[in-house]
């Protein structure tokens, strides 16, 4: 990643070189100035933009991605910057849909966090990486274990939710119970299949990451194109105003 430094320094080094050369003798002065004759300096930012965008592809960060899922009655989540670097020691806040805080936890050095749900509501997590960088993720009430108590303070919205989706511990034969069974099923097969599954998911994750990188490269070029397109539109309106 140190490769990113030479570029801005190079643009700086160029004029210094001219100065130094121009001081050494009058014969070289004309030559030094000739280097830049007929080269509109506007090209320099262009080249800088293009070189920079090519050099820096794998190094995005600062955008935070977070995800969470339920496993054995606990919510497991992880947060990482867009380049895969884990978000360590970040405060994770869980809220319900109305914004009431359900609890707080912290990510470990690997950017992973766990949260023990106490009520069966939608959990909205915000992972705060500091400095304005944060990410959201949701764990829906339907994914939580069915033996958790429903929310204590029942406002209308919660009631409506409960009517639409009756919790399993009230009505043993509801659809939720079936859900619970399919979720529990893999555990009975043992850890061997889980291990291979984890490997496959890891491979998928790597594929997704590399796919994201190629999309972003295209997006960078597209974004630059957009900006110059907007400049064209600005020219159009300026020409009309005249």
């Amino acid at each position: 990643m140190a490769v990113q430094f030479p570029c801005p320094l190079d643009t700086g080094a160029m004029p210094q070189k001219i100065l130094r050369r121009s001081r050494t003798g009058s014969a070289i002065r004309g030559g030094a100035a000739f280097v830049f004759r007929g080269v509109p300096p506007i090209r320099l930012p262009f080249f800088a933009v293009i070189t920079w965008s090519l050099l820096a592809l794998p190094a995005w960060a600062h955008r935070v991605d977070a995800s969470a899922h339920v496993h054995d009655g606990t919510i497991h989540g992880e947060a990482a910057f867009a380049d895969g670097q884990p978000v360590a020691d970040a405060i994770v806040t869980a809220r319900d849909i109305a914004g009431h805080v359900l609890g707080e936890t912290k990510t470990d050095a690997q950017g992973e966090f766990t949260f023990t749900p106490r009520v069966r509501v939608d959990h909205f997590f915000v992972v705060n990486a500091g400095g304005g960088h944060a990410a959201r993720c949701v764990v829906l009430a339907g994914d939580l274990p069915s033996d958790l108590p429903p929310p204590a303070d029942r406002d209308e919205e919660a009631d409506r939710d409960r009517d639409a989706e009756p919790p399993a511990h009230d009505h043993g034969d509801s659809a939720n119970h079936g859900d619970g069974e399919t979720v529990d099923h893999p555990h009975t097969h043992g850890d061997a299949s889980l291990g291979t599954l984890a490997q496959e998911i890891d491979a998928l994750r790597r594929q997704v990451a590399s796919l994201e990188r190629t999309t972003r490269f295209r997006d960078v070029l597209g974004g630059i194109g957009f900006i110059f397109g907007i400049a064209g539109v600005a020219f159009y309106f300026l020409a009309k105003r005249r």
């Binding site: 140190a2 930012p45 800088a48 965008s53 820096a56 600062h62 960078v220 974004g223 900006i227 600005a234």
Partner: peptide, 25 residues
């Protein structure tokens, strides 16, 4: 206008590029 566009594009790209200083980028 071209100057504004060049700088807009330069900022768009430059602030996407992160390099590490110590533990943060």
């Amino acid at each position: 206008i071209p100057r504004v566009a060049v700088f807009s594009a330069a900022f768009f790209v430059v602030s996407l590029i992160h390099f590490p200083i110590g533990p943060v980028s």
